[in-house]
Amino acid sequence: MIRFLAGRVAQAVLLLIVVSAGVFALAALAPGDYFAALRSDPRVDPAAIETLRTRYGLDRPVEVRYGVWLAGAVRGDFGVSLAYNMPVTELLAPRVGKSLALASAAWALGWVSALVLALGAALRPGGLIDKLTSWLVSTLLVLPELLLASVLVLVAARTGILRLGGFGLALLTLAPGVVPVLLRHARAALKEAAEATFVEAARARGIAGRRLWVMYIFPAAANPLISLFGMSFAGVLSASLVVEAVTGWPGIGPLFLDSIAGRDFYVVTVVTLLMAALLAAGNLAADAMLYALDPRLRTPQ
């Protein structure tokens, strides 16, 4: 177990390094840099912009810039935001908490409702809960998220029940995107397991009721669900970045989108790393759970 975990942690560190290199490479590929915006001001001479680029090292080759950044990052210096002229970590620190709060709330809400409803549906196929969840999934899935978001924002503006830029509005906008995806997968996994051949076989042997569920169906359904569990948080977080920007929740979302558009790439790099780290952590947790639950996984093929 420890060897397994240590190996995976090493992989995660490698992942972060690859991701950071990837961001630098991609950023170098995207045309224009932070100072390009100055070019639309008729009073600023292009020569002055070139000097600014030199000053911030934007004219250096990307591998040199990456080397400098990596050397700094190892010591805890993740670079300076070009727009805000302050260290990225200092810029992000107050906002990360806001984003995590929103994403965790939506994630928890999504999982609890998905599991409860999916179980209800699977216990009595064709029953009220089954129909209800199927209807809920279909409705929420076919509603374009963007439309839903703008309708909610409009309602918030009109009625004043939800405050624009408030937590309630952001959560209410994020949840409908998260719940049906989880619900649908949970339903499918439980259904799949309940109808699997070995469950049929168990049924044929007279195993039924709680024993059938606990011993056969849950373990079979657990596998895809645990995989989903691990990667879903990072998914929710990245969805939340967009929702934050639409609803005005002051997390890293608006800043991240601004930074991408503004080519403030140290900010982009660090936010991306943060997401990658969460993703790796989620997957690691999921794999550890699978490893712990399923003894067969421990024997190498």
């Binding site: 990837g22 990072a234 990658a276």
Partner: peptide
């Protein structure tokens, strides 16, 4: 094989994490 699994899954994580908008702009 196990190594392929590790490579593919880590690659997937990289793919999920990177800001692809940059690539598309590029």
């Amino acid at each position: 094989p196990v190594w392929l699994d590790a490579v593919l899954m880590r690659l997937g994580e990289v793919c999920l994490a990177l800001p692809w908008l940059y690539l598309l702009l590029g």
